[in-house]
Write a protein that binds this DNA or RNA. Structure first.
Length: 502
RNA sequence: GCCGAUAUAGCUCAGUUGGCCAGAGCAGCUGAUUUGUAAUCAGCCGGUCGGCGGUUCGAAUCCGUCUAUCGGCUCCA
C-alpha cells in the first residue's frame, strides 16, 4: 500500500494500474542509482555494461496492448556490450533490407501498386504474372496427383450466402460493403473466402459415403478490408488469391485426410527449399469456450486428430491455446521474412460449422443422413504472400524451373546478333526460356546488367563460338563454368529443372 | 483504425534561414565506337516538387486537409 501510495503521489497512474493488476501479491523493484522501477526483472547490475546504444524507432503502442486503452509512445532502442557488435548488427539490418520483397519486386518488375487503383490491391506485372502462373501450374499438378478436382466460382455472391455462413454477422460491418444493383433490395458481396461457394457445389447433388472424400480446389481471389495501417507489400493486401481447397470427408476419414494435406505442404515446401518454417497447432482457449461453435465432442475429436497427425508426421509443433478459429482448430505453417517478422503461410483448418450451417449431408452405409467434416487448406496461404516470402528467401534468385528468364545470350558485338538470335530460337524450341541482350554495349556492361536481373545463366558469343560451335557459359554469381554445344546446354538446363522438381 | 515519420524525373537521391528558368547519377532516345567475362564516350529527352486549399510581393520550402508509402501498435474469416 505504501508503495502504491508513493506512485499515486507522483501521479504515475500506469505504475498504480500495474500494481493493482498484480495477482500473486509479490512486487519486485530494481534500483539504478536514484532511479527505482517496478519491474519483474531482471535488470543489469549497473549501466556500465552498456557501451553501444542506438535509438531504433519511436512508435505508438496501446497500454497493455489493448486497442481500447490509451496509446503511449514507445521508444525502441538497442544496446550492445561493444560498439563493434552494434555496427555488425546494423550492417546485418542493412543487408536484410536489400532482400525486402518490395524493393526486389520493383527492381525485377514483378508487381506494383497504384494509389488510383487503391491501397492493398497489387498489380502483377508480366514477369510477376509469369512467375505466379508457373507456381500455380506446379500446385495444380501436385493437387491432381493427390486427387483434388478443380472448380471455378465467381468473385461475388449474394449477401444471403454470407448470412448463411455466419461471416456477415461476424465481419460484415468491418468489410467491403454490399454491392447494390438496379433491383430494389438486391445485394451482393465481394467474396472474402471461397468456402461458401464450395459448400454450394457440394450441395449440387446428393452424396453417398462412398463418394467421400470430395476435394475441391480453386485459385480463388478474395477481398478483405484489412485495416489501412496493417497493409504491407504483398504480405498483407486487400485483394489476394488463395491456393484454396476444401475437403469434405466422413468423420472417420478426418485424420487420414489431414495427414495427406500435411504431406502436400511438406512436399511443396521441400521443392521450394523452404526449410526454416515452424508449425503451430491452434486449439481452443482452455477456459473460455463461449466463443467457439460446435459440440464439445466434435472439437475434442478434431483437436486429437490434428495433434496425432502432427505426431505421426514427426512435425515439431508449438501448441497455442486460444488461437483456434471460432469454427475449428487449425495447423499453421509460419516463416520469417528478411527482417525477422513472422508470417503465416500454409494453413490447414478443421471446420464443423459450415457443414452445419449449409446443412451438408451424405447418405451413410446405414441409409441414414450424416454430416460431413470440412477441411480448409491452403499450402501457400495466398499467392501474394507466398511470392513475397519466396522473394525474401531467395533474394530474387529464383529456382531455375521458376524464373521467367533462364538464359541471356550476350553477343560481344553487333556482328554476332544474328548468331545469338539463332541460338535463342533453338533454345526456346527446347523449352529453355532465353533472351538476347543485343544492345550496343560492351560485354562487361551486359554481364553486369544481366547479373543484376538475376538471370541464372549467360552465354557469351563472338567469333570463337561462331567458328567452333562451343558456347561459353557463365553462371549467375559464379562466373564462367565452361564450354558446351547448344544441344548439351539445352540438356543441361532441362536436367537441372527436372532435378529441382523431383 | 491509432501513434510517429515520409512523399522532388521511370529508379535512387540533392535542393542551405521562403527568392533568378528545380539539379545529379542510373534508365530511355540519338550518334560515335564493334567491343571477350560485373559499368565505353558524347549529345538529347524527361518533373502540375503526391492532390486540393491557405499564408506571402514571392512557396518544392511555412500552415491546413486529403491520398499514398514507411516503422510500430491493434487486427488478420
Amino acid at each position: 500500500m505504501f508503495i502504491k501510495g508513493n506512485y499515486s503521489e507522483k501521479g504515475d497512474e500506469y505504475k498504480v494500474d500495474l500494481i493493482e493488476g498484480l495477482k500473486d501479491g509479490t512486487i519486485t523493484f530494481y534500483e539504478q542509482g536514484n532511479f527505482t522501477d517496478l519491474c519483474r526483472g531482471p535488470h543489469l547490475p549497473n549501466t556500465g555494461y552498456i557501451k553501444a546504444v542506438k535509438i531504433m524507432s519511436i512508435a505508438g503502442a496501446y497500454w497493455k496492448g489493448d486497442e481500447k486503452n490509451k496509446q503511449l509512445t514507445r521508444i525502441y532502442g538497442i544496446s550492445f556490450p561493444k560498439k563493434k557488435l552494434l555496427d555488425e548488427y546494423l550492417a546485418m539490418l542493412e543487408e536484410a533490407k536489400k532482400r525486402d520483397h518490395r524493393k526486389i519486386g520493383k527492381e525485377l518488375e514483378l508487381f506494383t501498386f497504384s494509389s488510383r487503383v487503391g491501397q492493398g490491391l497489387p498489380l502483377w506485372l508480366p514477369k510477376g504474372a509469369m512467375l505466379r502462373e508457373r507456381l500455380e501450374n506446379f500446385l495444380k499438378s501436385v493437387q491432381k496427383k493427390y486427387g483434388y478436382e478443380p472448380v471455378i466460382t465467381p468473385h461475388i455472391g449474394q449477401k444471403e450466402l454470407y448470412v448463411t455462413s455466419g461471416h456477415y454477422a461476424k465481419y460484415g460491418k468491418d468489410s467491403f460493403q454490399p454491392i447494390h444493383t438496379p433491383a430494389e433490395g438486391e445485394e451482393f458481396l465481394l467474396k472474402p473466402m471461397n468456402c461458401p461457394h464450395h459448400c454450394e457445389i457440394y450441395k449440387s447433388k446428393p452424396r453417398s459415403y462412398k463418394d467421400l472424400p470430395v476435394r475441391y480446389a480453386e485459385f480463388g481471389t478474395v477481398y478483405r478490408y484489412e485495416q489501412s495501417g496493417e497493409l504491407h507489400g504483398l504480405t498483407r493486401v486487400r485483394g489476394f488469391t488463395q491456393d484454396d481447397a476444401h475437403i469434405f470427408c466422413r468423420p472417420d476419414q478426418l485424420k487420414e485426410e489431414f495427414i495427406k494435406v500435411i504431406d502436400i505442404v511438406l512436399y511443396i515446401f521441400k521443392t521450394l527449399d523452404f526449410e526454416n518454417f515452424t508449425t503451430q497447432i491452434s486449439l481452443r482457449d482452455k477456459e473460455d469456450r463461449s466463443k467457439y461453435i460446435g459440440s464439445d465432442e466434435n472439437w475434442k475429436k478434431a483437436e486429437t486428430a490434428i495433434v496425432e497427425a502432427c505426431k505421426e508426421k514427426g512435425l515439431k509443433t508449438v501448441i497455442e491455446y486460444g488461437e483456434a478459429a471460432f469454427y475449428g482448430p487449425k495447423l499453421d505453417f509460419m516463416v520469417k521474412d528478411a527482417l525477422g517478422r513472422s508470417w503465416q503461410l500454409g494453413t490447414i483448418q478443421v471446420d464443423y460449422n459450415l457443414p452445419e450451417r449449409f446443412e451438408l449431408e451424405y447418405t451413410g452405409s446405414d441409409d441414414k443422413k450424416h454430416r460431413p467434416v470440412m477441411i480448409h487448406r491452403a499450402p501457400f496461404g495466398s499467392m501474394e504472400r507466398f511470392v513475397a516470402v519466396l522473394i525474401e528467401h531467395t533474394a530474387g534468385k529464383f529456382p531455375l524451373w521458376l524464373t521467367s528468364e533462364q538464359v541471356a545470350i550476350l553477343p560481344v558485338s553487333e556482328k554476332f546478333n544474328d548468331f545469338a538470335h539463332n541460338i535463342k530460337t533453338k533454345l526456346n524450341n527446347s523449352d529453355v526460356r532465353t533472351i538476347v541482350d543485343d544492345r550496343n554495349e560492351k560485354v562487361g556492361k551486359k554481364i553486369r546488367d544481366n547479373e543484376m536481373k538475376r538471370i541464372p545463366y549467360m552465354i557469351i558469343v563472338g567469333e570463337k563460338e561462331l567458328e567452333s560451335g562451343m558456347l561459353s557459359i557463365r553462371k549467375q554469381g559464379e562466373g564462367e563454368i565452361g564450354k558446351m554445344t547448344i544441344e548439351n546446354f539445352a540438356k543441361f538446363i532441362s536436367q537441372r529443372v527436372a532435378e529441382e522438381l523431383k
